[in-house]
Structures are given as C-alpha cells and as structure tokens.
Design a protein around this nucleic acid. Sequence first.
RNA 1: CGGGCUGUAGUAUAUCGGUUGUACAAGUGCUUUGGGAGCAUUUAGGCUGGGUUCGACUCCCAGCAGCCCGACCA
Length: 572
Amino acid sequence: MLYSKIFGKTKKDSKKYDSANATFLIKGGFIDQVMAGTYTYLTLGLRVLNKIENVVREEINTIGAEILMPSIVPQELWEKTGRLQTVDVLMKTTPANKFALAKNDSEYVLSPTHEEVVTPLAQKFNLSYKDFPFALYHIQTKFRNEPRVKSGLLRGREFRMKDLYSFHATKKDMKVYYENSKKVYLKIFERLGIGKDTVIALASGGSFTDDYSHEFQTICDTGEDTLFFVKSTGIYYNREVAPSLAPNIYSKEKPLPRKDIKGEGIIGVNELAKFLNIPVEKTTKTMIYEVDGNRVVAVAVRGGYNINEDKLRKVLKCKEIKLASKETLKRVTGAEIGYAGIIGLPKEVEIIMDESINNRANVEMGANKTGYHSTNINLGRDIPLPEKFYDIKMAKDGDFFPETKEKYQVMKAAEVGNIFPLYTKFTEAFDYKFIDQDGKEKPIYMGCYGIGPSRIMGIIVEKFNDEKGIIWPESVAPFQVHLIGLDLNDESIKSKVLKVYKVLTDKGIEVLFDDRLDATAGNKFSDADLIGIPVRLVVSKRTGEKIEYKRRNEKEAKLISLDEVLKIIKGN
RNA sequence: CGGGCUGUAGUAUAUCGGUUGUACAAGUGCUUUGGGAGCAUUUAGGCUGGGUUCGACUCCCAGCAGCCCGACCA
C-alpha cells in the first residue's frame, strides 16, 4: 500500500495524552478520537484491529462457532433476566426527535454483552441431549456507559469484544470446557505477543455463585487492576477477592485508660488521625449496614482499609447489603453519621470485626455519641473479644496472604480477557432446558468467555514502545515491511524501489511503501519509527544494488540483497 | 456518582470590557533532501443560548463538550 494514499497521516505534534497508547496511536494516524471513549479506526489502526481479531477468530474457531448478533435488542429480553434494572453500564436507544418518535417510539437496549440474545437463540435450535455441548461466539462492537473513560483504547464507551457462550448438559462438562478455554486463551495471548506478561488471576464470580471467575491480566503499569501474587502458590488474585491479613502493629503498648474526646465535625479516618495526632492505623472505621432489609450489621475495620462488600456479603450469607439510612444509623448508634463505633450497640445489631482491628492497643473508635470519639480502646477490655474475626476488607499493598503468612507481591495489570462460569443463571431465566436420553427435562449449564480486541490493541502499544514510537509484534503489525524510498526524483532510484515494492507484494508480503516526494529522509525515518512496523527497508542513491534492512527493535541497519531480504522475511 | 479544571484557527497556545497575536499544520513559489529543512507568501479562530453593558471572546447564569483525581467496573 502506498503511504501517500492511505487515510490518516502521522502528526508532528499532538496533545499530551494520559497513556502511551493514546499518544502513539493518535500521533501515528492509527485512530482518531470522536469523543471521550469512542474512536475512529483509520487505515493503519483498522489493519491492526483486524489482525488481532483474526488471531482470536482462528483460535476460538477450535472451540466454538462464529455467528453475528445485533447490537440493538428489545428491552423485553433484558427484563426477563432482571438485568434491565440492575446493570449500571446499560445504555438504550431512544428516538432523537419528534419525527423519529412519530415513526417508531420503541426504545432498544444497546448491548453491553449478549447472554440475553444468545440464550433464546440457542433455545430455538438445540433442545435435545444430542445437541450438547455447543458454543457460539461473535466479534462485535459493545456499548457500556462507563462513568469515566480513560487511557485511549483501554477504557471506552464503545469497544470491540469477542464473546463466546458455551452450553452444557452437565455441570461437569461445563467445567471441562471451562478449563480447556484457558489453554485456548493463553495461546491467543501468546500469538498476540503478550503471552509472557499475561497471567490468570482469580476474580469475583458475581452475585450468583461462590466460584471465582478467571481474568486474563497483562502486567502493565497503565492497567487499572491491582493483582496480589502469592509466590509460593503461584496464584494471582484480583484485589477484589484477595484474602488479606493486615500487618501486626502497635500491639505491644501498655493499655491506657479509655478517654472520650470531643471532635465535632471530624469525620473520616484520615482527618481524625490528624486531629488526634495518631497514625491512621490506630483509628477504626465502623460502617453500619442494612442487610436483606431485616438485619442491621456493624462492620469494623482498621483505619486505612476499605470494606470489601463482596467479602462481607459472603460472610453474612445474604443477598443484598447497603449502607444504613441516616434514620437507622441514628436509631442504633444514637449518633449522626461519622461517630459510629462498636461499643455499646443495642442487641439487634450484629457485629462483624475484621481481623485488622485486632493486634492493636490503645486505638480510636467512634463513641456512638455525636461529636465524640473514644481513644485508648483495647479489645478484650473495653469490648469483649468476638468468637471469630473475619476478613471483610479490601486488601492493600503490604498485606499478607493469610494461609502462608507471606507478603503479597502487588502489581498493576490490564484485563484482556475474562471467563465466567454462569451455571444456570441465564438458561433458567429463559426457561431453557433440554430433554435427556431418559426423556426427562434437565437444566442447561452455561459459561461465557470474553476478550477485548480493541483494548488489547492499546495494551500492546503500552507494552511495546520506546521514545520514538510503537514497536508492533509481527503478528499484529499493520504491515510486515515498511519500505522507504529516498531520492525518488531520480528516475533510476524510483524504478528500483518500485521493483522492490512489486517483488515483495507479488510474494504476498504486506508492504507499506513510503512513496512521498515531498517528505525529507528525516521525516520518513521518524514516521517509520512512530508507526512501528517490524522491518524497515530503504532504497536510495546510497544503497546501490542493495537494500538497507533494519528491524524496528534493533539499532543497526545492514545492506543486503533483495534475495536475502526475501529469505529473512519468509523465514519469519 | 463525588470533587476539581478547561472551552480562542486543523493542532498547541498568548493577550484583552473597545480591530484576537504567535507557533506548528495546510496551500503556493523557489532553494533543500540519510534522522522531524530554509525563505517568501496565502488561508484559517472566540462551543451554544441567555443576561449585565453604549460595547462581551473577556464578567454573570444555564446548557453542551473535553480533561484530571477519586469511587465504580456482572
């Protein structure tokens, strides 16, 4: 392809963006921002995206059948699963003006995922035990109403996703397929060049199962997720599920007499620690929750930690938890928001103590009296020790893995894939069952498996770049070869470089030929570095009968013949 | 969803209650041509709506949009 003809040119200057992928992809003419979180893929960018999707397609074809489902779907489907009201990233279409409204006033869901479409689809075709197992997938544009988009292609409101759904006659079969899908996924990331840095992390299984889901996380500083790695077991946990043991601190002090201190308007542990002139770890955060509408629970955790509501939900074995209303808080603690503690609460309040509030001495705690905080509280003296301490906090850097007592290694990562055992959540919602060999109706088990090609494109740039630009892995580079012609006003040079271009393309090699007459050598070289195609070839009056060959990830160039070039590129 | 900031040319910025200045990009001409060339010249701008004012790009209000921090992310 001729560089002079492609749409989307490199820019000399561009805005400062929050991430390497936004900077280089925009500057290099791969993508163009339309609004926060949506981008046009220009010629180069679309080629990369297509390559990524084709790798995904080739591998997923070994375990599923490709189809294509629509983006706009009726709301009724989402009502059936109850998700119309609950999924907080869900968007819908609505007629834009009175004329459109007069023609058709329907509103449709803009799909963020496709369980609601694929399940009834499967139900139309596959109802016999003979049909199982089977799996369907598509690669398609998804819409999510993200509250905050950022980091170029890493988080947008419209993005590309491969979503695969598997259907099974037994739970066991679902699990076998699920395990196998991990291998297929790892192979995909290997082929995309990010295999070395991509790990499987345990993540939340959602509200309907105690199982973990599994995330494929690429270790990357721009990533939004935090992984907690246990070296001895080789297991990575997403922060949201990492079991946590807090460091043991301030436990050796002699107990001092309890004191209530007035601190009107001092709310929040950091402000409080400052006010009392104590480390934040000696404060205690107490939150009052209403559980399933009929229980009131006080949860205490060491200052500096946040409560992990997923963990809490599991400890309480409940469906729904929410922070108590002002009225409930006032009724059970006798105080306004900000002064709750776990001393002297009425019997109706269950108390859950995180293990982090233990192993400390002379700590602060809300006094359950508006404007007052108690200090020098000691567990076992001022409050009876509980039967059990729990782990209901969000793990943080410095914490230990409870089972082995080893310190976590903590790192940032970006999620490139996610697989999820769905069990019968969706098949039940659509009353999708099959008739087994014995003539009886039985439940169908499902799994879902996602990969985000557009995000992967961004992550690859995050991982492979230098100060000059992108360094694409060969499998996803927009072209295999970047051919630069210099001195093109000289007819003999021009015909030589055209011949090289023709020989290469005739061999089926993808070549981007920089044929511009008005760009200087420096311009062409720096554009080549920015665009990041793995192999750069130069033909000029200096190269004579040979061709200059240089790899993007190497410094040295060498002069070789066209035959040698063909050999090297074919050998790859 | 909470907090903060910003809307001036294609991009990045400056100044100003009274004719918006500059750089890059783009166009033209000449020179240049192995690491983002030079000179000359041309084109191009105050987000939308309302208010205050003799006069608003500037001040005020609302809307829309973008950016940043945090929360959220089956």
